[in-house]
Write a protein that binds this DNA or RNA. Sequence first.
DNA 1: TCAAAAGTGTTCACCGTACACCCATGG
DNA 2: CCATGGGTGTACGGTGAACACTTTTGA
Lengths: 230, 230
Amino acid sequence: MNLNNYSTEDKVLLAVDCIIFGFDGEDLKILLIKRDFEPERGKWSLIGGFLKRHETLHDAASRILHYLTGFNDIYMEQFYAFSEVNRDPGERTVSVAYYALINIEDHNKELTQQFSANWFSVSRMPHLIFDHNQMVDHAIKRLRYRTSTKPIGFELLPEKFTMKQLQKLYESILNTKLDKRNFISKINSLDILIRLDEKDTESSKRGSFLHTFDKDKYYKKTNEGFVFKI
Amino acid sequence: MNLNNYSTEDKVLLAVDCIIFGFDGEDLKILLIKRDFEPERGKWSLIGGFLKRHETLHDAASRILHYLTGFNDIYMEQFYAFSEVNRDPGERTVSVAYYALINIEDHNKELTQQFSANWFSVSRMPHLIFDHNQMVDHAIKRLRYRTSTKPIGFELLPEKFTMKQLQKLYESILNTKLDKRNFISKINSLDILIRLDEKDTESSKRGSFLHTFDKDKYYKKTNEGFVFKI
DNA sequence: TCAAAAGTGTTCACCGTACACCCATGG
DNA sequence: CCATGGGTGTACGGTGAACACTTTTGA
């Protein structure tokens, strides 16, 4: 293509929108904010922002996530660019969507309040502005695929967790019921968890063992050809 | 985020780059052009172009593909946005990458010549401009996943094809050897091909049956819960 | 002693994989 | 009649799915 002159080409606003997933022990949730500027002021929205000239999309997503949650080093994955011409009635904007996984327990509630943010179950999403509902649907599909092939689900759990919590997590992501015995033996066969000598006694008299994800072991096994698959 | 003024935000050039896959019966190939403008004039490159104000990314990719190949209705999938700040030394450009599947036989050779285009085996890719090699790697991964879960491989074959051709196609995409007997019984068990009463006698004296992909049957089965999986 | 959750094994059906021989044909 | 590629079936091991009872402990 004879594109010998960059300067004659159209430029567009490039936005980044983030689907922030969290898990409260029961449901997979998404953090939404109430939009406080026009257009669509007062409606629920994903968090987002615009790409600056001197940053990558990844940097922009990190910046936006840090701004809202106070976290750095959040697990993120870019998954799709949305480009319908009139998707944002304010101005022609193309938006690159990321999803992020955060541990809901660590999450700073002050920041959430400051932005009128709220967690919503993915099964009870409100109507969102623009094409944000479509982004959420797309993000959930990608999350399902990714959590089935990479051990990223742990990003949504506390450092120490019970098998029950892990199972509930997968059930809420995959939107299915799983058999306890099959699930646990599957997880155990992967051999990437450490069972601690510690028990969680919140939810039962007997108490259930806590586990952690053994990252080093996982990477070592991966180098030896191991493939994570749930 | 208090983004109450779109006009103060940076705008960027948004490009679309296309990885065009083809299959010649032996190897998976990619169509590249020799770039005829600066920067990097004379180097091999993916085809690409810039998004115009009034089109979607999908439209832009279609337009670019049509321009180079003369085809409409090409199978395409968007897979990633590349945004390193200096990826294009000419100007800050974010590029959204698509891959496309075309039937190499139908492909218009005149257009190819007009653009100094050439097919290259994916196993013998030249060095490409910018981050295009990285885009190609990413595209191949996505293609492998997608051809394993959707019947899109047929886009790369003639309307009528032999089982041998189909097997070679999967072997070249997945970069593995497959067992003939297992492959054929797998394909037959899917029950989405029609075996014609016609034979291809190009490659043997006995001749081998030609098949076509039964799109209607596939969609019907899909509605009934069938999942394509190779 | 009872309620509530934790923890644990076996069986069976199906699928992926390894593997080898006969068939049809044109030269 | 022979060389070449086309076409077909079986046996085995491993994995996913169904399925129920015992243990622990605090109230």
